[in-house]
């Protein structure tokens, strides 16, 4: 095996709530390989979002290490960290909240291109149109305000923004949870296509074991700031070993009946 794309070692993060320290991450270790989808599941408050945010350097962990594409991510700061962000992206849960209320579709996709110097000022409108087509949207949508388009379209715009700089890892924090069931399937298909064609790995944070089973190669189960179980997706969901895993599977009755979903 070659070196993993992302390696998280013993990550710890405490928050203080009402003066009492809460360990949101308590020694989390995991790897994500190139082009792999690792699903992160666990009960609410188990620290999934905190881990995602720490990997994106949106919060600073107290202890542990993160290496990404062979470099020590926690050692980067300032301009070097901003440059490294081109390879490491995120799609947020609520596509409404994740965009500036004044933004236009073309504007939000232009941001990463402009910041990372992809294309000249004259070339970028063409790149934006290509990216919109890439995520299954009409290139003419660019002129519209982000708040004018539908939730599903907005999440496609968020994906276009995330893949604009050709990242090797995208963290999806409940990226399909806020969407209608009908739209959700389309977005999952799009994500699978992008993974195949652009060699993107996903850290797929989700509550929905049905979705996880359909899209993930491997699953990590978190509880109270620790990874309590990790393994091949179908295997973990079919026969969870940890108490947390058993509880999660038991909470989704249809999975025990063995409804099979295509593995993307």
């Amino acid at each position: 095996m070659s070196a993993p794309l992302l390696e998280v070692r013993g990550l710890g993060k405490r928050f203080s709530r009402n003066g009492r320290p809460v360990a949101a991450l308590n020694g989390v270790s995991l790897n994500v390989a190139h082009c792999e989808t690792l699903a992160l599941v666990g009960p609410s408050g188990s620290g999934k979002s905190t881990l995602g945010h720490a990997i994106l350097r949106l919060i600073e962990p107290d202890s542990g290490g993160i290496s990404f594409e062979g470099q020590d991510l926690l050692a980067l700061s300032g301009g070097r960290l901003r440059a490294a962000r081109a390879r490491l992206q995120m799609v947020f849960q609520d596509p409404q909240a994740a965009f500036n209320p004044r933004a236009t579709v073309a504007g939000v996709i232009d941001d990463p291109l402009r910041i990372h110097g992809i294309g000249s000022r004259g070339e970028r409108p063409g790149l934006i149109r290509k990216l919109l087509e890439r995520v299954g949207l009409s290139p003419d949508l660019g002129e519209r305000a982000v708040h004018e388009i539908s939730g599903g379209q907005r999440q496609r715009v968020a994906i276009a923004r995330a893949i604009a700089t050709r990242p090797s890892l995208v963290v999806l924090d409940e990226a399909v949870s806020a969407l209608d069931v009908s739209v959700r399937g389309d977005i999952l298909t799009l994500l699978a296509d992008l993974q195949r064609e652009e060699n993107i790995a996903y850290l797929f944070i989700s509550h929905d074991l049905g979705v996880v089973r359909a899209v993930a190669h491997r699953v990590a189960i978190m509880d109270a700031g620790r990874v309590v179980e990790m393994g091949e997706a179908r295997q973990v969901i079919a026969d969870p070993q940890s108490a947390t895993g058993k509880a999660l599977v038991a909470a989704v009755p249809r999975l025990r009946c063995g409804i099979s979903t295509e593995n993307a």
Binding site: L56, R82, M90, A98, F99, N100, I115, R161, T165
Partner: peptide, 14 residues
């Protein structure tokens, strides 16, 4: 604290 500010940081904005 809004997500769109986090999103701008993720995009690498100064």
């Amino acid at each position: 604290e809004r997500d769109y500010v986090a999103s701008a940081r993720v995009a690498g904005m100064h």
